[in-house]
Structure formats: C-alpha cells, structure tokens
Nucleic acid binder design. Sequence first.
RNA 1: CGGGGCGUAGCGCAGCCUGGUAGCGCGCUUGCUUUGGGAGCAAGAUGUCCGGUGUUCGAAUCACCGCGCCCCGACCA
Length: 573
Amino acid sequence: MLYSELFLPTIREVPTDAEIISHQLMLRAGMIRKLTSGVYSYLPLGLRVIRKVEQIVREEMNRAGAQEVLMPAIQPAELWQESGRWSFYGKELIRFKDRHNRESCLGPTHEEVITDLVRNDIKTYRQLPKNLYQIQTKYRDEIRPRFGVMRCREFGMKDAYSFDADMAGADLSYQKMYDAYMRIFSRCGLVFRAVEADTGNIGGSSSHEFMVIADSGEDAVAFCAACQYAANLEKAEVLAPETMSTPVEPLPLTEVETPNVRTIHEVCDFLKVSPEQIVKTMIYQGDAEVVAVLVRGDMEINEAKLRNYLKADTLELATDDVILKATGAPRGFAGPIGIKVKVVADYSLKPMQNMVVGANKQDYHILNANISRDFKISDYADLRVITEGDACPRCRSEIRFARGIEVGHVFKLGTKYSKAMHAMYLDRSGQEQVMIMGCYGIGIGRTVAAAIEQNYDDKGITWPVPIAPFQVIITPVNVNEESLLKTARDLYDRLTADGVEALLDDRDERAGVKFNDADLIGIPLRVTVGPKKLAEGKVEIKIRKTGVVDEVLLADAPGYIRTFIADAVGTAS
RNA sequence: CGGGGCGUAGCGCAGCCUGGUAGCGCGCUUGCUUUGGGAGCAAGAUGUCCGGUGUUCGAAUCACCGCGCCCCGACCA
C-alpha cells in the first residue's frame, strides 16, 4: 500500500473529549471517527487491525471445532418473548416496529436466534455436540457509551454457542472455548487474566471473564498473589473468619443521642469510634421480601452475592417508606435490635462484640450491642465485597486488586434458553432431553482498544506484530531524490511479493513528519532509506517497540524483516 | 435517569463577564527556498459563532426553550 493513496488522516493534537489513551490514539492514528455517541466508523487502518483480530479469532475458533455462521441483526420480538427476555432486557435493547407494525429489535446478543436455529434442525444426540459462532455487529443502547470504541452502542463481537447432550459434554465444550480464548488473547499480544465472574443477565451457572490488565479498565479484579485464583470483584468469595477474637466483657447496652448522624463516617466522628466497631444495617427489597443485611462498618455489601443468596431476580435498596415500616425510623438509623424484618449478616459480624448499631429510632444509636444477648441473626453468609488484603479463598494467601478490561466472557448457560425455547433432542433410549448450552463472547473492537492500552508510548501506538495494520513501513527520507525513492520502491515490491504487509511512505513530506506518523500509527518495523547509509549499500531498520536500530545491507533487508515477523508471530502463537 | 462541564474555521482554543459587524495557533491552497525527527518566507481560502424564540437601534456576547457532545454514578463484550 502506498501511503500517498491511503485514507489515513492522522491528527497531531490530542482531541480533548477522548479520555483514555486508546481512544486518543485511535483518533490520532486515523483508525476511527465518531458518527454519534457510541457509534464509530472504522477507517482503513482501523479496519485492518479489526480484520487481524477477527482472523486470529476465526482460526482459533475453527481449531477448537466451532463452525462459523452469520445471523441477522434484525430479530423478531416473538423469540425474545419466548425466552422471557423481551420484558427483562430493558432499555438496552433497541426495539422498533416495522411497517407491518411487527415488534422487532436489533440483536444485542444471539441466544434466542441460535437456539431457534438449532432446535429446528437438530433432533438427535447423533447431531450433538455442535458449536456455532459468528463475527457480527451487535446493538446495545448503552446507558453511557464511553472510552471510544471500548463501550459503544454498535460494536463487532464474536459470539459462539455450544449445544451438548449432557453436562460432561457441556463442560468439555466450555473448556475448549476457555482454552481457545487463552490462545486468542495470547496471540493478540495481551497481558490478561481469566477471572471467575458472576453470570449477570445472560444467566447460567458459571462463567469466566477474560480481563486485559490495564489501569484504565472499568472493572476491578481481585487476584491472589500466590495462587492462580482471580475473580471479578462482585464474584470474589470471602472466607468466613477462622478465629473468633478474644472474648471481652460484654458491656451494658447504652442508647446515645446522635442528632442527624447517619453515615458510618459521621457516626465515627461523633462517637469517636472506628468503623470496625460499627455495624452497617442496610434494608433491601428483594422480589417479594424485605431483609435487613448487616456488615461491618468498614465493608461494603455485595449486591450480586445478596441477590444470589436471596435467589431474587431483582434487588434494590428499600425505599424510605419501607425503611420506616421496617425500623420505625427514617433512613440512617437502622439497626438489628427490634427490627421487624428478617436479619441476615455477613460473616464479618461473627467476631464482633460490643458493637455500635442504629437504634431504629431517629437520631439515636446504640453502643455495646452483642449478638444473641441483644438481637438474633437468622443466617450468616458471604455477602460482602472482597477487600485488598483479604485471604485468598483457595490458598489463604493475600488478595490484591487490579483494573481490567473485559474483552471476553464465557458462560455455562445450562438449560436456561434451551428449556424456555424447547431445544430438545432424542437420546439413545428415545427419550426427549433438553440441550445443554454454553455461550462465549469476544469484543473485537474492545480487544483492539485494549491492545493499545497495553502497547503505546509517548510517540504513539506500539502494535504487537500479529495485529499490526502493516508489518513494516518503508520511509525514503526524501522522495525527490530519485535513488532513494527507487530503492524504497524496489524493497517494497520485493517485500510485498514475499507476502510481507508493507506500507511505502512515498509522500513528499519532510522526514520528521514521516517518522512521527510512522511512530504514531505504530508499525512494528520501519525501514529508513536515506542517502548516508544507502551510499554504503545499507538501510536502517528500527524496531518500533524497543527503539533498537539495525543497519542492514539492502540485500539482507528482506530476510531480516521476514525473520523478525516470523519470530514475533511465531512466539505469540 | 440524576449530578457536573462544554458547543466559535478541519483540529485545539481566545472573544462572552462589561452587547458595537469574528480572532489566534496548527492544518489546508499557491509560489519560492528547504529536505534524517512535525521547515522558512510570501500570498490566500475557509465560519448557519449548535438551533429556535425573546430583549435591544444593534446579540457569538444578555434571557428563555430545545438539541448535541463530554465527564462522574447503576450495565456489559
């Protein structure tokens, strides 16, 4: 490709509305342009990278035994009503009526369509297992699109769906996808971690997220410093305290006036106690029941855990009315003593003694509350958010936190969709059985953005070779010198003939401009064709990522370049 | 949806407070010079000042109503 013909508008200045580095660099490097909030066009350079990632995904999916299909973006409401998600999915689903007034939507994901496809044509265990995938555009009307291509309303996603006859088969399908994902993200040159995750509204029994470690990540990951354990914060298990603290003399229950003191912070200041002595009492409204949840004052309740514990579809903080009814006091003074709803406590309550609790009475708290003497707890459970320094639930070593970008997610769906939509098959004995499903997603554009978050410097992007838009850029320092341009052209022709993805910067620009553009767009190798070295029959080859410059005889350059690329691509895969 | 901010040339911004006929840098066009890390000189082109309504002799500037975008919170690949 000739640079002079490429549609590659680079920007020198940093666009102010781009907050994170990948967004800035994708704009500056002429990869993307925004059409409207959360909707982007890919320009030639950006699309080349997208295609590279897609190709890696395709190769690994095929290698894992999945088959590519392509499903529609337009989907009828009936399928979604059948699965129950038409009412459940919410505003994120872009709905519309066609000219015949039929309710439709733009697919945010394809469990319904694939399940419909499979149930119509797969009838027997002999046809199972199957794993079908597609790389297709998804539509989600995100509450707040942000970070450029990282979180947008229209985006490219690889989604795969497995169908198995039994659990053992489903587990194997899941493992194959898990392994394929490990290879995919490794090949993309990413530093990532597979973490245990909550299943969210896709549903199902278990799941892993593939997190690219980056400070700009929207997700927090808890991981063990010693073992392989890693989990999304909302999933990470917290162990019950092993040892009780040394018993102290229970002090008499004392009610104190705490005018307008509501938050943990205010209580600490007012009563001169530390948060560890306080019990936080939160009133939640589950599907049908109202519960009081207790956790130590310095800790946070994990609503995902609570929802799972209560087996509730919906869960939210109780309204002021409900709180008043349950406690007899306004928000801010709830406590377990005399409360009129079921009380569950996080394990963190177990060792606490002489605690500070709300008095269920406006402007009052109670000192020296003790479990069983003063109030009862109907159940203990793991209900809090893990904190840094907690014990690893697997090996009891120390938990640390990192930020991550979720680029992939694998779910064991079980029978959630196959049951609702009657995806059945006949087993060996002629009995009708429900298929066991799994689903597996990769955000293509997000993977590209994540790769930039991990591969850049002050000059621009430093692409990992396997996903670079071009492998080498050839820069004649002055195209008005015939010999330089001709040498560069010959080298370009030779490399292209060898199957190397080369870009020839034949623009009549100053060398500095070309060098800066080459650095910005991040091509792994730059061959500089200049008068000084050419007089010795040499060119310079600069490695973008390391900055290392090698002087190479012109005749040796193609070999040098092919070896470099083969090593880089080979090592990664 | 709640809270904050912004909207003036392709990009980055000033001008707005205190109303008086639109400006800077970069980029773009042409010419000459220059040519190994974002060149110099000269001459140019480019604006529904987000939109509407109002106030005023006069509105980018003041008021009201919209719209769009960005950032912070609940969602997710």
